[in-house]
Design a protein around this nucleic acid. Structure first.
Lengths: 361, 361
DNA sequence: TCTATGGATGTTATCGGTCACACGCCAGCG
DNA sequence: CGCTGGCGTGTGACCGATAACATCCATAGA
């Protein structure tokens, strides 16, 4: 195979698509000049630049990102590590991340973390040492992976709670983003949201509120659980043990089945909307009416919740915004000068619908 | 917190992680021999292989996939092109694809196709010319992208229907996969499933069945719509115009709102479960009882459908299996010798629950 | 007129691998 | 004893880019 042989259409050797060399040859300049035009960094005369751009268009040339990355060009790819792409929260966060990354010209990789994954082995999934990573760490696998990541990989993470955070603090719109120890973590104020939902239910006259928890991401008390408990404590109400649920409607259904025989249970807060769906079915089967007999409140505001029967009172969480902000954080970390400001995301917001109402008299 | 692959002992120059050269030097062989050991292709003496493997472990060496791909190594990455990662069908398919790809040692990229995307521009998102691609083409953007893909990119796609397919044919378990014109497309037998669901409703005594369609992926009649119509035709029943819905519960709700005033409408088949959810809500608001007054059947068997109120009769589709099979197809295409057989996936199956029942007398 | 200056461009090394081919060695064979 | 043929291994080119450094040329200052 000849090295710089002639080419059919004046472009690339047969089969291969145009490379920077092909462009350089046709434009009558060196490949370095083409590189300069592409990256727009160094100065190139206007005439040369125009010529090169024209040849690029003619040949349909497109820089090979692999080669760029190999040669030490700026980072232009991220890998998202997440547990379950089918869960609404994770899926929505992923969508936000992907959108923001794509807009910034990054290519996005994805790797799903199985529950039995050995955290240290995730590095083997990266395309190269030092590849940038975003972790959706809403569960314990995610958190463990996050912890096991070598210090040389640039990372930003959407987490359930900020490890070691003291009292809740939120600076205006940007709840959860601070500049100390690990400024590359980002989260929603689950605790405040859970407390808010709990107070809402108490305000409806319920004696207390029960809670069905999603799996915790850490050994410590989950933020939602904590917010719920704090609200009960502050109001001087009984604090029942939280029920442990999973992520699915079925797990919510199973978790509360036995509880519902107790008519004194009149309000249940759920760790997500799917759990709430399962809880409402269990309630029907137990002969309890929602909301007449029993108020149910969910978390997440999934697309279905407004159409459930009864429609679900829930806490709307801006997962997409969180995902976008997470990428923003990573971007600033990778390229402090060029990266735009981290976009804001919305505070959790209680959406009152049909599934909650006054306590039965 | 010591991590595998982090801080090589005496291998690599400061900062950089170990390369094939470092391994070669420490092991006292050439880098080509290391490459042979890694890829396991060519024959290497047992002693040498052991020595190299040991050094690899010591240094925490990990091959750089970028460099491998650049140098023309075997394809070990795929990019999935899909429209909306939040929709159940697409999300489940993606999950199947990712799982299968990861298991086969592929890294998975993802790129979301916005509705207003210029199909020809997707090639710009690929990491290199000729990168392998999987398309989830359940809607028209996906189909257009699929069509616009240059012939040199290896592709496999999960599609709604097989373009130009004549009468339904299925070879044993592998409905929809044949070896002619475009053997890299894969699909579920939507038409048969829709026909089956329609016959089921007619069998319950309904005079006819109405249909709320998801957006079609082509200008031609969608497979689900067609199956529905054929079943009605075969049974000699009236064939009402299909109602056009979107993907969301809201669109289902809006699509049928006016229809429900007509009490002669007693059975509605929906293009997906979300639409069905919206339809059931519209029914409630119109004072129609499900299933007493009105039977509703969905499509997909999303995780929520079993817990809706009433629980939803629906057609279970094996999206994950479809995704796995799609990757299988691609894998065989990329590497006919090494790739395992394409895994099978399940046929659509009608799951009867509470939302359907005998026609009102 | 000679030279310092700086913008525009070319040259060479490098990134971390794979591939095609050459080479040395030892056994089997005529 | 010389040839042939595998097997195990090393060598050099190449993949498609970027970075550092070298070079060329024109213009301005001495």
């Amino acid at each position: 195979m000849d090295v710089i042989g002639h080419t059919p259409a004046g472009g690339a050797p047969r089969g291969r698509s145009a490379s920077i060399w092909d462009v350089a040859r046709v434009a009558g300049v060196s490949q370095q000049t083409v590189s300069r035009v592409i990256n727009g960094k160094a100065r190139v005369s206007e005439a040369t630049r125009a010529k090169v751009l024209q040849v690029i268009a003619e040949l349909g040339y497109r820089p090979n990102r692999l080669a760029q990355a190999l040669a030490g060009g700026p980072a232009r790819s991220v890998t998202v590590l997440t547990s379950d792409t089918a869960l609404y929260g994770a899926a929505a966060t992923l969508r936000g991340m992907e959108e923001a990354a794509r807009r910034a010209g990054f290519s996005v990789g994805i790797s799903v973390l199985e529950p039995d994954l050995e955290p240290a082995e995730v590095v083997l999934r990266l395309n190269r040492p030092g590849e940038a990573v975003m972790v959706i760490a809403f569960d314990d696998v995610g958190v463990r992976v996050l912890r096991a990541l070598p210090p040389d990989v640039p990372v930003a993470a959407a987490v359930e709670r900020r490890p070691g955070e003291g009292a809740g603090h939120s600076a205006g719109h940007s709840a959860g983003h601070s500049a100390d120890a690990e400024p590359w973590q980002i989260w929603l104020d689950d605790r405040a949201a859970a407390a808010h939902a709990t107070r809402y239910l108490l305000g409806l006259g319920h004696r207390t509120v029960h809670y069905v928890a999603i799996p915790s991401s850490t050994s410590a008390l989950a933020q939602r659980t904590q917010g719920w408990r704090e609200a009960l404590f502050a109001a001087g109400r009984p604090r029942p043990e939280p029920l442990q649920g999973g992520w699915s409607p079925r797990s919510g259904y199973l978790a509360v089945r036995s509880l519902l025989a107790d008519r004194s249970v009149t309000a249940i807060l759920c760790g997500n909307d799917d759990l709430a769906l399962g809880v409402m079915r269990a309630a029907r089967e137990a002969g309890r009416e929602v909301p007449g007999d029993l108020s149910v409140v969910g978390f997440d505001d999934s697309p279905q919740s407004a159409f459930m029967n009864p429609s679900l009172t829930t806490v709307r969480l801006d997962f997409e915004g969180l995902g976008r902000a997470c990428f923003g954080l990573l971007h600033r970390r990778l390229d402090p000068e060029a990266a735009p400001a981290v976009p804001v995301w919305s505070e959790p917001e209680l959406i009152v619908r049909e599934s909650s109402g006054p306590a039965p008299s």
